[in-house]
Design a protein around this nucleic acid. Sequence first.
RNA 1: GCCUCUGUAGUUCAAUGGAUAGAACUACGGUUUCCUAAACCGUCAAUCCGGGUUCGAUUCCCGGCGGAGGUACCA
Length: 599
Amino acid sequence: MEIEKKIISTIIKGIKDLYGQEVTENLVQLQTTKKEFEGHLTLVVFPFLKISKKKPEETAQEIGSYLKSNIPNVIADFNVIKGFLNLTIASSSWIELLTSINQNDKFGFIPVTEQSPLVMIEYSSPNTNKPLHLGHVRNNLLGWALAQVMEANGNKVVKTNIVNDRGIHICKSMLAWLKYGNGATPESTGIKGDHLIGDYYVAFDKHYREQISELVAQGMSEEEAKNEAPLIKEAREMLVKWENNDPEIRALWRKMNEWVYAGFDVTYKALGVSFDKIYYESETYLEGKEKVLEGLEKGLFFRKEDGSVWADLTQEGLDEKLLLRSDGTSVYMTQDIGTAKLRFQDYPINKMIYVVGNEQNYHFQVLSILLDKLGFDWGKDLVHFSYGMVELPNGKMKSREGTVVDADDLIAEMISNAKKMSEDKINKLTDLTEEEANEIARIVGLGALKYFILKVDARKNMLFNPDESIDFNGNTGPFIQYTYARIRSILRKAAEVGLVVPQELPLDTELNEKEINLIQSLSDFALVVKQAGNDYNPSCIANYCYDLVKEYNQFYHDFSILHEEDKNKQIFRLALSANVGKVIRLGMGLLGIEVPERM
RNA sequence: GCCUCUGUAGUUCAAUGGAUAGAACUACGGUUUCCUAAACCGUCAAUCCGGGUUCGAUUCCCGGCGGAGGUACCA
């Protein structure tokens, strides 16, 4: 980082001295040199040709000479290939850089201060009528990782969850439980609360379909049958009762939601995610209604003859959008407006990020415009962190067809597979207690799952193959975790013989290319964290960690560390290992992935 | 129909407009006097098609073709 800054400023000065023109920093393209060429950093000189009015080679040569004579303690040498100026950095500069990384426990992170902007991140947002599935897992992992990344970039972060705890879908579960449940509770059945409720949601659907086909058999059209089936009518009645605060219905609703929340808590805890503030739609939907009526008064919205309220977005190139139904009840959009209002009351939000699937791109485009019209400062540039769907090898997940991957099942399976894998490796964990071994299996199993999902660009749809997901080789979480554990092992062994990495590293160590490359890769971490924050994209951190690990593994394979005879060299390599370990821990930490001391 | 996103080795994923498009899995073949072999090394193999922008395009723009999503008084 420091090295690059120094070079860039010298280049800008050099262009001025050589060609008499001021250039901006973004014109200076300094990148890491490709492996097949000599040098560490490469300047692309094409952008300067118009200024120098000379050939690429000549321009590169001149800039190179300027750098070498002006900052000789940084630029040891240079070479020119076409329009590329390859710079070789002096060893002492690299060692200084490693020292600065070594001294900073939160290398690459920008500290959060009182003045930092406040970013609120909404993620998870479950319905309370069924347990979490693989799609929610992606949402939760992305939301958590993004929160960590934003914080690492110097933002105050508030993680929030909006729970959709009201509506017809909840009533369906409640109704089925009353009819077919025989008073079953999580305690009496031993079934996790969210799964229990989910079972009755499925039961409702089953009986509902039966009624529909009966009615169709009696000669009713399918469309009509769907509306006339006794079950759906009862569910609607129940919803009305709920809205009218019927004490019995409300009591049942509260009881069943508590079961679900208890179940969700277990899943959230297993995934390692948490929230600073939870909102419930049962508490926000009325606020939204109010806000919409307020907008109506101000003339922002209009009312149709049937009483429904709409926003006219044709000016913005969109169509008209419904905000309140003709019967006065609120829709999805209304609730989001209400939630926004409450959040704004509760926090001085500078930026709002919604982690929601890409099927709702249009919804958020509209929401942004509406919030802006209603006077929310952050409305216009709210961020919809839109992620793709998770597909299975045999197609999309459909809850009705039973092709969903349940989150709890998946987590349990990953952990038990991790356990099996480590048991296959004899001589490894034999001295550990059962408890310690289980803890490692948990860390590794979850690491595999999290990494598998987070390494993929969030915007893209991704394919999840349950059989292949638990691969512990290649670009996977366990591979990275394993490298970390090995590094920790080396440091433990070194400590046993009294070798400790000092704060300050000796400057007179001779470095080879692989060692320099490793320092360079370490320093890239700061750039990657910044990029992840700018692009709202945790996946680049995952891929960075993997590249770093691969590079370290080669280094580790080629050079000895504990058996190195040159004392300076030994300390240097130990420091290098320690800092690779540190950066892995920081990087994986941003993804919400733990790293084990042993495995 | 209209709108948005997306097309990279057999498969799953990479590549701020930069040099010969990288990995991993699979297959085949190597490497343990040595700190964790859950490792390392090698071989095979790809930018959907056609234009444009420029020193230079997987990337940006336009047009096809393929995939996904949206376009509801569902959430």
